[in-house]
Amino acid sequence: MALIPGLIKGLGVTGSTMMRTIFPGGVKKPIPSPVKGAETVQYPHEKEAPPTRARGVIALHEENCTACMLCARECPDWCIYIEGHKEKAPPRRAGGKPRQRNILDRFDIDYALCMFCGICVEVCPFEALFWSPEYEFSEPRIADLLHDMSRLSEWMETVPDFEDYEAGSQQKKLKVPPT
């Protein structure tokens, strides 16, 4: 018997939510309009902008990458494939030794394996990897989920400008390069 007030209260919660959804105008404008009253949006027709720091897809800023392999080694499920070679670069001063430079040949992320943990973005010391809030990259064929270097570079256009963290935060600040 002691449960009855709680049961009625519960019915009141669901009932009032239903009335609020059907009649978003309330008592003053009792016109049924559930499309306005519902909290959800009808996805393919209407899209919600994800938050700017949402983890949608990982973008590669190619010029910053030195093929250091840190991201590939830290990746928990080994979904990053990097190949590079070394090239001689002209010496910094006249008469000096020629410098060595790492050239990136291949940078693939297999999104069929990726679990979006973001460790590669965290660990990159040269600010070559960025989170993009873009989320519509599903494919009918699973092999197409392997994004190569050019595809990953295209995602850079969707990376939003970095917004400051909350006051007092000590996080490192990413500089998003202009694309």
């Binding site: 669901t14 009932g15 939510t17 239903m18 609020r20 959804t21 059907i22 559930p34 499309v35 009253g37 519902a38 909290e39 959800t40 009808q42």
Partner: peptide, 9 residues
């Protein structure tokens, strides 16, 4: 009805 009770369509 159940959708409206959960504020969806």
């Amino acid at each position: 009805a159940v959708s409206f009770m959960q504020s969806r369509l």
